[in-house]
């Protein structure tokens, strides 16, 4: 086990994976409580448009993914309001829109399928030093912002109308929330890929919520499940050659089943 940490790419994978797992598990708890799990999927798929632009223009994929993820999040809100649609309908519009734009850009530029697959399914072993620095910077920003605003987020999750009536600037906190979700989704792309983003955001938090304990314990459990899942994915990928994102997702799901069973047996 220790010898694999002698490889630079392994160190980067563990470090980036752990940062992303913590950021995702933290914001994921609120995503679940607000019943917005589909939002992360929509944003992730929409960010393919930005990622494709980055591949074609040979510029920073993380920067483009981040910009398009945040743009996607705000477009969902705009479409919902402009067309008076439900949120899932707005996501249902944005998701294929971003995906189609991404496919069109990539096919026009004749991008290689290996390159596309890296963004669809993640490439945690191919994190360059500058990308690791960006993941650390934006991951830490997402974690600190979520920790700093968690009481406001929790109050809005519980009773948005009551919080607004009591004078809380709910629109400000909702905007901050959407930006953090966008940022976290962009972080996930390198680790789990566009298609498996929700496994990092939704599954650890869902597993932790099964335990029905207080907020601090819930986020601690979610972070632990998230980190263990990513580590398992990396190790499984290294030792038995399975794709990292898929192994991470399967372990997260096993933990969801285990925590539900544990809660049931304790009743």
């Amino acid at each position: 086990m220790i010898e694999i940490l002698e490889y630079e790419f392994m160190k980067s994978a563990f470090l980036a994976g752990s940062i992303v797992a913590i950021a995702c598990s933290l914001i994921g708890t609120f995503v679940i409580l607000r019943r917005m799990a589909f939002l992360t999927d929509g944003i992730a798929h929409f960010s393919l448009a930005g990622t494709a632009t980055a591949i074609v223009t040979r510029s920073s994929t993380f920067g483009w993914a981040l910009a398009s993820a945040i743009a996607g999040a705000f477009m969902i809100e705009k479409i919902r309001k402009a067309f008076r649609l439900s949120e899932d309908a707005a996501i249902g519009i944005i998701l294929p829109l971003g995906l189609s734009a991404g496919i069109l850009i990539l096919s026009a530029a004749k991008a290689s399928s290996v390159e596309i697959s890296a963004y669809l399914f993640g490439s945690i072993f191919a994190i360059a030093k500058d990308e690791l620095a960006l993941i650390a910077l934006f991951g830490a920003t997402a974690i600190l912002l979520t920790a700093y605003l968690h009481r406001h987020f929790l109050a809005i999750c519980y009773d948005e109308e009551g919080s607004k009536a009591a004078g809380m600037n709910v629109d400000f906190y909702n905007t901050a929330f959407v930006m953090i979700v966008g940022m976290t989704t962009a972080l996930c792309i390198k680790v789990s890929g566009i298609l498996l983003t929700s496994s990092l955001i939704v599954m650890p938090a869902s597993a932790a919520l099964q335990l029905n304990c207080g907020f601090k314990k819930t986020v601690l459990a979610a972070c632990t499940i998230g980190i263990l899942s990513v580590w398992f994915g990396i190790l499984a990928s290294y030792y038995i050659g399975v794709p990292t994102g898929a192994a991470t997702t399967l372990l997260s799901f096993s933990m969801l089943l285990a925590s539900a069973a544990a809660k049931k047996s304790l009743k």
Binding site: L154, D159, G162, L209
Partner: peptide, 25 residues
Amino acid sequence: IGYVPQKPPSEKRFPATVSEIVAMG
């Protein structure tokens, strides 16, 4: 203003204790 909505939030697994919810006000 203090406002009590008609429908109490119904999330059964909301990760907060009674005193944490009251503190939100």
